[in-house]
Design a protein around this nucleic acid. Sequence first.
DNA 1: CGACGCTTTGACCCGTTTCAACAATGGTGG
DNA 2: CCACCATTGTTGAAACGGGTCAAAGCGTCG
Lengths: 226, 226
Amino acid sequence: MPHSSLNRLIRKLETGLVLSDEERNAILQLPVTTRDLKADQDIVRYGDRPSQCCLLVEGFLCRYKTLPDGVQTIMAFYVAGDIPDVHSLHLGLMDHTLSTVAPSRVAFIAHDAMRRLTHQHPRLADAFWRDTLIDAAVFREWIVNLGSRDAYSRIAHLLCEIFLKLKAVGLTNGNTFALPITQSKLADATGLSSVHVNRSLMQLRADGLITLDKGRCTIPEFERLE
Amino acid sequence: MPHSSLNRLIRKLETGLVLSDEERNAILQLPVTTRDLKADQDIVRYGDRPSQCCLLVEGFLCRYKTLPDGVQTIMAFYVAGDIPDVHSLHLGLMDHTLSTVAPSRVAFIAHDAMRRLTHQHPRLADAFWRDTLIDAAVFREWIVNLGSRDAYSRIAHLLCEIFLKLKAVGLTNGNTFALPITQSKLADATGLSSVHVNRSLMQLRADGLITLDKGRCTIPEFERLE
DNA sequence: CGACGCTTTGACCCGTTTCAACAATGGTGG
DNA sequence: CCACCATTGTTGAAACGGGTCAAAGCGTCG
């Protein structure tokens, strides 16, 4: 049922401000359509002009660009509750691709409905705006990661980020969380080769900072991982 | 006079949509205070809770973070007409520092005034929102730059970006533009050592792609620089 | 059971960093 | 107007992190 997806969205927006009943209802009345997708499926592609926003209900998404030589760079990961392309509301043309990393359920909200909502409820506009600004803050963090850290801490940092994101929406189990991301995708996200990602991960394990077991990752002592 | 700075802002917003007279007047009536700064002066620092937005009237700004070990990473450059910290409107705490790269003139607009403006004029809110989204798109481009390109094309790409930004606001002179950025700052922005930036720049010159002369840069054939 | 995709390993190579010195530049005060 | 000093730019040699290529384990799922 669509309501559960919108509730997740509301919960997310309410981390920034308190919503009135009216505002909450306005969100719940948004018309959404839901779709289930397998892993590695593009949702919106480079060059598209989307007419709807997408809301991740369950699973894992990423945002990537492909260079002329075929190299892919992942610029962000998203988890349940994230609404990764509000920005298509104001920037018509996609300059990159949004795709699933793992099997996922996504909900779509038409741009028209979103625009009506944000114009009738300026505070909701602010809340969505804020969300895109947090996204931008994470991009900045990635710039720092790629620009100034070595392989080892780049990966450590990325794992921390994913852990915190999942924890914020209650998808962690103690210090353990699902990590359905292949090493070669981690490589695309950290600007390293998959071979070196593998070696760094093994080093992190040898140092006792993480445990990996069939797509699940455990971080015994979060602080030590910076 | 403050009006010239606000006019620059209006021109920038109008690249995205057409403003009504009413909207334009609302902007022109924003109370601003202007300040002149030397090079390398922080405007808002990491940890600050700014109560105003800053608008760059003239000069060059950058956004950077400092890591515990003292390494600085530059995440963005800004030129006249840019309004680099609208995001402080919705994200109270600064997670990085905004600073001058060259002598600059900046104008400040109180958050209160901005908030009133955007709530009374939803389309202006959209326009500012759009601006922050473009900022985010540039961050993504930097992620690609750092993650997937070698030193030579990283620098080429950065020079292209600055050239296009300056050209958009009419601050280029043919293929020539002011580049008041030291090589060591270019290094901080590209994730390279200043020595290697120097070598790559010399290579670009040797290949005839750029000419450097006392803080001015010329790009004879833009296409060849990707 | 076999095939396919992901992880792990080893050997070798290359782009980039580091350190250190030196040259050019520009701004300042006398 | 010149002498001085502090930045910035330029250069060389040596060391290292991470890339590439290729092959071998391992799981998993039809």
